[in-house]
């Protein structure tokens, strides 16, 4: 799929700062996230890419002492996701997340996917069946699990577990899907399956993905942002970032001289 020249804005970070207690982890980040595109966040360990990602669904609110400054605007309704009056639960209902390590619940495959719907008060068996099937198909795992939906999710392989977690996030039709290094615990074949899936998913949902694997960023993303020491060093179309980076620091990282 070609990148259009005038993509719609889905979200935008404006002067975003983030503090773990006293420590400033994100420094004045400004960055657009385009609708139905894959945006990759790359950078060396500790550069703040996961911290940035977890700001979008207010995961930092779960732990004391964390503080945001600035805004993340979410469109089309132009909500500031970080505003104190915006309930983090509402934010998480609109924005799904897939974690670094597959984290299925120790429940059945079906219940894992149905959980997001149950949380929203959906208990109608037929609706659940329908949506679970749809989500599992969307995560390209339906054929592997359709005959054993009642089995424990922990019996699946790592790659299957991660796709199940994607299905869990998809079941509630999120507008934005966050991926926090989703393949770092997987073997190359399972990684390939996830990357292919991300490619499919961007037809339906906007994706923001943190990866420490530059080839992966190049393969799956339309846009790439390079972060370093809590700063957004460079943002642009993926081909441009990888072929002719403007910033010396981006170039050093991409060519392997740093990080």
């Amino acid at each position: 799929m070609q990148i259009h020249d005038n993509p719609t804005l889905k979200a935008e970070a404006r002067n975003l700062n983030f503090f773990y207690g006293e420590a400033k982890a994100l420094k004045n980040i400004n960055m657009p996230i385009y609708d139905k595109k894959v945006t990759a966040l790359i950078g060396p360990s500790g550069c703040g890419k996961s911290t940035y990602l977890r700001s979008f669904n207010r995961m930092h609110d779960l732990y004391p002492g964390n503080r945001y400054e600035g805004e993340i605007r979410f469109f089309p309704d132009n909500t500031n996701l970080l505003a104190a009056e915006v309930d983090p639960i509402e934010v998480r209902m609109r924005i799904g997340m897939v974690f670094q390590k597959p984290n299925p619940f120790p429940k059945s495959i079906f219940e894992n996917v149905a959980y997001g719907l149950r949380v929203r008060g959906e208990n109608n068996k037929r609706v659940l069946d329908d949506k679970v099937e749809h989500a599992l198909k969307g995560a390209a795992i339906w054929d592997e699990v359709k005959d054993r939906l009642a089995d424990l999710a922990s019996n699946l392989s790592g790659g299957q577990q991660q796709r199940l977690c994607i299905a869990r996030a998809l079941a509630t039709d999120p507008e934005l899907l966050l991926f926090d290094e989703p393949t770092s615990a997987l073997d190359p074949i399972a990684t390939g399956a996830i990357e292919e899936l991300i490619h499919e998913l961007k037809k339906r949902v906007t994706i923001l993905i943190v990866t420490h694997n530059m080839q992966q960023a190049a393969r799956v993303s339309d846009y790439t942002a390079y972060m370093f020491l809590g700063e957004m060093v460079e943002f642009g179309k993926t081909d441009e970032i990888f072929i002719k980076p403007k910033d010396k620091r981006t170039e050093d990282y991409i060519t392997g001289r740093m990080g």
Binding site: N57, I89, R92, M97, F99, Y115, V119
Partner: peptide, 23 residues
């Protein structure tokens, strides 16, 4: 219970109580 289970539950929009009750 690992933190990632709690986060997994909260990430789909569960409240603390739902997380406690189901997980």
């Amino acid at each position: 219970i690992p933190a990632m289970i709690r986060e997994g539950s909260m990430a789909v929009g569960a409240t603390r109580w739902q997380t406690c009750r189901y997980h």
